[in-house]
Amino acid sequence: AVTGSQTALLLRAFEKDRFPGIAAREELARETGLPESRIQIWFQNRR
Protein backbone atom coordinates (compact mmCIF):
# COMPACT_ATOMS: atom_id res chain seq x y z
CA ALA A 1 0.00 0.00 0.00
CA VAL A 2 1.07 3.58 -0.61
CA THR A 3 1.77 5.50 2.60
CA GLY A 4 0.61 9.02 3.36
CA SER A 5 4.05 10.52 2.78
CA GLN A 6 4.40 8.68 -0.54
CA THR A 7 0.96 9.91 -1.59
CA ALA A 8 1.87 13.49 -0.68
CA LEU A 9 5.02 13.28 -2.81
CA LEU A 10 3.09 11.77 -5.73
CA LEU A 11 0.38 14.43 -5.48
CA ARG A 12 2.97 17.22 -5.60
CA ALA A 13 4.51 15.64 -8.70
CA PHE A 14 1.04 15.21 -10.24
CA GLU A 15 0.30 18.93 -9.78
CA LYS A 16 3.46 19.78 -11.73
CA ASP A 17 3.01 17.23 -14.53
CA ARG A 18 0.07 14.90 -15.10
CA PHE A 19 2.03 12.90 -17.71
CA PRO A 20 5.55 12.32 -16.32
CA GLY A 21 8.13 10.71 -18.57
CA ILE A 22 10.18 7.67 -17.66
CA ALA A 23 12.98 9.75 -16.09
CA ALA A 24 10.53 11.56 -13.80
CA ARG A 25 8.83 8.28 -12.86
CA GLU A 26 12.17 6.64 -12.09
CA GLU A 27 13.12 9.61 -9.89
CA LEU A 28 9.79 9.30 -8.04
CA ALA A 29 10.42 5.57 -7.66
CA ARG A 30 13.76 6.32 -6.01
CA GLU A 31 12.22 8.96 -3.74
CA THR A 32 9.24 6.85 -2.67
CA GLY A 33 10.78 3.38 -2.70
CA LEU A 34 7.96 2.16 -4.95
CA PRO A 35 8.55 0.33 -8.26
CA GLU A 36 8.39 2.56 -11.36
CA SER A 37 5.54 0.42 -12.71
CA ARG A 38 3.53 1.21 -9.58
CA ILE A 39 4.19 4.95 -10.09
CA GLN A 40 2.98 4.69 -13.69
CA ILE A 41 -0.25 2.96 -12.63
CA TRP A 42 -0.80 5.53 -9.86
CA PHE A 43 -0.62 8.37 -12.41
CA GLN A 44 -2.92 6.54 -14.84
CA ASN A 45 -5.49 5.98 -12.10
CA ARG A 46 -5.18 9.56 -10.86
CA ARG A 47 -5.85 11.02 -14.32
Results as ranks from 00 to 15, higher is better:
1 A>D: 13
1 A>L: 12
1 A>P: 12
1 A>E: 14
1 A>G: 12
1 A>V: 11
2 V>H: 05
2 V>D: 06
2 V>C: 03
2 V>F: 15
2 V>Y: 13
2 V>K: 04
2 V>S: 04
2 V>G: 04
2 V>E: 08
2 V>A: 07
3 T>F: 06
3 T>K: 06
3 T>L: 07
3 T>E: 05
3 T>W: 06
3 T>A: 05
3 T>Y: 05
3 T>V: 06
3 T>C: 07
4 G>N: 14
4 G>P: 15
4 G>W: 10
4 G>C: 15
4 G>Q: 14
4 G>A: 15
5 S>R: 14
5 S>G: 10
5 S>C: 15
5 S>V: 13
5 S>K: 14
6 Q>K: 05
6 Q>C: 08
6 Q>R: 06
6 Q>G: 03
6 Q>L: 08
6 Q>V: 12
6 Q>F: 07
6 Q>T: 07
6 Q>H: 07
6 Q>S: 05
7 T>A: 14
7 T>L: 15
7 T>R: 14
7 T>S: 11
7 T>P: 00
7 T>F: 15
7 T>Y: 15
8 A>C: 14
8 A>S: 09
8 A>D: 09
8 A>Y: 09
8 A>I: 13
8 A>W: 08
8 A>K: 12
8 A>Q: 11
8 A>N: 08
8 A>P: 01
8 A>E: 13
8 A>V: 11
9 L>F: 09
9 L>I: 15
9 L>C: 09
9 L>V: 14
9 L>A: 11
9 L>K: 08
9 L>E: 03
9 L>G: 02
9 L>W: 06
9 L>S: 06
9 L>Y: 08
9 L>P: 00
10 L>P: 01
10 L>C: 00
10 L>H: 00
10 L>D: 00
10 L>Y: 02
10 L>M: 04
10 L>T: 00
10 L>I: 01
10 L>F: 00
10 L>Q: 00
11 L>N: 10
11 L>Y: 05
11 L>W: 07
11 L>A: 06
11 L>H: 05
11 L>M: 13
11 L>S: 06
11 L>K: 07
11 L>F: 05
11 L>R: 07
12 R>L: 10
12 R>Y: 06
12 R>M: 10
12 R>W: 06
12 R>V: 07
12 R>K: 13
12 R>D: 06
12 R>Q: 10
12 R>G: 04
13 A>V: 07
13 A>H: 09
13 A>R: 02
13 A>Y: 14
13 A>C: 13
13 A>I: 05
13 A>P: 01
13 A>K: 03
14 F>Y: 12
14 F>S: 01
14 F>N: 00
14 F>Q: 02
14 F>K: 02
14 F>P: 02
14 F>D: 01
14 F>H: 00
14 F>C: 02
15 E>T: 07
15 E>P: 02
15 E>S: 09
15 E>V: 08
15 E>M: 12
15 E>F: 11
15 E>K: 11
16 K>V: 09
16 K>L: 11
16 K>C: 07
16 K>W: 06
16 K>P: 01
16 K>Q: 10
16 K>D: 05
17 D>H: 07
17 D>P: 01
17 D>V: 04
17 D>M: 06
17 D>E: 08
17 D>S: 08
17 D>T: 08
17 D>F: 05
18 R>E: 08
18 R>N: 10
18 R>F: 04
18 R>C: 10
18 R>Y: 04
18 R>Q: 13
18 R>I: 05
18 R>A: 12
18 R>S: 08
19 F>W: 13
19 F>R: 04
19 F>Q: 05
19 F>S: 06
19 F>V: 04
19 F>N: 10
19 F>E: 06
19 F>I: 05
19 F>P: 01
20 P>M: 03
20 P>G: 02
20 P>S: 01
20 P>V: 03
20 P>F: 03
20 P>Q: 00
20 P>W: 03
20 P>A: 03
20 P>E: 00
21 G>L: 05
21 G>Q: 07
21 G>V: 03
21 G>F: 03
21 G>R: 04
21 G>D: 13
21 G>H: 05
21 G>C: 06
21 G>S: 14
21 G>K: 05
22 I>A: 13
22 I>V: 12
22 I>S: 10
22 I>H: 11
23 A>K: 13
23 A>F: 09
23 A>G: 08
23 A>C: 13
23 A>I: 10
23 A>T: 09
23 A>P: 05
23 A>S: 10
23 A>Q: 13
23 A>H: 10
24 A>I: 09
24 A>K: 11
24 A>T: 08
24 A>Y: 06
24 A>M: 12
24 A>D: 08
24 A>N: 04
25 R>P: 00
25 R>S: 03
25 R>D: 01
25 R>T: 09
25 R>G: 02
26 E>G: 07
26 E>H: 11
26 E>C: 14
26 E>Q: 13
26 E>S: 08
26 E>P: 01
27 E>Y: 09
27 E>K: 14
27 E>Q: 14
27 E>I: 12
27 E>P: 01
27 E>M: 12
28 L>Y: 03
28 L>P: 01
28 L>M: 05
28 L>N: 01
28 L>K: 02
28 L>W: 01
28 L>Q: 00
28 L>F: 03
28 L>V: 03
28 L>I: 08
28 L>R: 00
28 L>E: 02
28 L>S: 00
29 A>G: 05
29 A>T: 04
29 A>P: 00
29 A>Y: 02
29 A>Q: 04
29 A>I: 04
29 A>D: 01
29 A>C: 05
29 A>V: 06
29 A>N: 02
30 R>D: 04
30 R>M: 08
30 R>E: 05
30 R>W: 06
30 R>T: 05
30 R>A: 07
30 R>N: 06
30 R>S: 05
30 R>G: 04
30 R>Q: 07
31 E>W: 08
31 E>C: 13
31 E>T: 11
31 E>D: 07
31 E>I: 15
31 E>K: 12
31 E>P: 01
31 E>Q: 15
31 E>S: 11
31 E>F: 07
31 E>H: 08
32 T>C: 05
32 T>D: 01
32 T>S: 05
32 T>A: 04
32 T>Y: 02
32 T>L: 09
33 G>M: 04
33 G>I: 01
33 G>T: 03
33 G>V: 01
33 G>Q: 04
33 G>S: 04
33 G>R: 03
33 G>L: 03
33 G>H: 04
33 G>W: 02
33 G>N: 05
33 G>E: 03
34 L>D: 00
34 L>R: 00
34 L>A: 02
34 L>M: 06
34 L>V: 04
34 L>T: 01
34 L>W: 10
34 L>G: 00
34 L>I: 08
35 P>A: 09
35 P>M: 06
35 P>S: 15
35 P>T: 14
35 P>Y: 02
35 P>F: 04
36 E>S: 07
36 E>H: 06
36 E>R: 04
36 E>Q: 09
36 E>W: 05
36 E>F: 06
36 E>D: 08
36 E>Y: 05
36 E>L: 12
36 E>P: 09
37 S>I: 12
37 S>Y: 14
37 S>C: 13
37 S>M: 09
37 S>P: 10
37 S>Q: 10
37 S>K: 10
38 R>V: 15
38 R>G: 06
38 R>H: 12
38 R>P: 02
38 R>M: 15
38 R>E: 15
38 R>W: 15
38 R>A: 15
38 R>Q: 14
38 R>Y: 15
38 R>S: 13
38 R>T: 15
39 I>C: 03
39 I>W: 00
39 I>L: 03
39 I>E: 00
39 I>R: 01
39 I>Q: 00
39 I>M: 01
39 I>D: 03
39 I>F: 02
40 Q>D: 14
40 Q>A: 14
40 Q>H: 12
40 Q>C: 14
40 Q>F: 12
40 Q>R: 14
40 Q>W: 10
40 Q>S: 11
41 I>P: 00
41 I>D: 13
41 I>Q: 15
41 I>M: 13
41 I>T: 10
41 I>N: 09
41 I>V: 10
41 I>H: 10
41 I>Y: 08
41 I>E: 15
42 W>S: 00
42 W>K: 00
42 W>F: 03
42 W>I: 00
42 W>E: 01
42 W>R: 00
42 W>D: 01
42 W>N: 01
42 W>T: 01
43 F>P: 00
43 F>Y: 04
43 F>E: 01
43 F>A: 02
43 F>T: 01
43 F>V: 02
43 F>N: 00
43 F>L: 03
43 F>S: 00
44 Q>M: 09
44 Q>H: 10
44 Q>E: 15
44 Q>L: 07
44 Q>N: 08
44 Q>D: 09
44 Q>V: 09
44 Q>F: 08
45 N>A: 11
45 N>F: 08
45 N>M: 12
45 N>G: 06
45 N>C: 14
45 N>Y: 08
45 N>E: 14
45 N>D: 12
45 N>H: 11
45 N>K: 11
45 N>L: 12
46 R>F: 09
46 R>T: 08
46 R>V: 06
46 R>S: 06
46 R>E: 09
46 R>Q: 14
46 R>A: 13
46 R>D: 00
47 R>T: 05
47 R>I: 08
47 R>S: 05
47 R>W: 06
47 R>H: 04
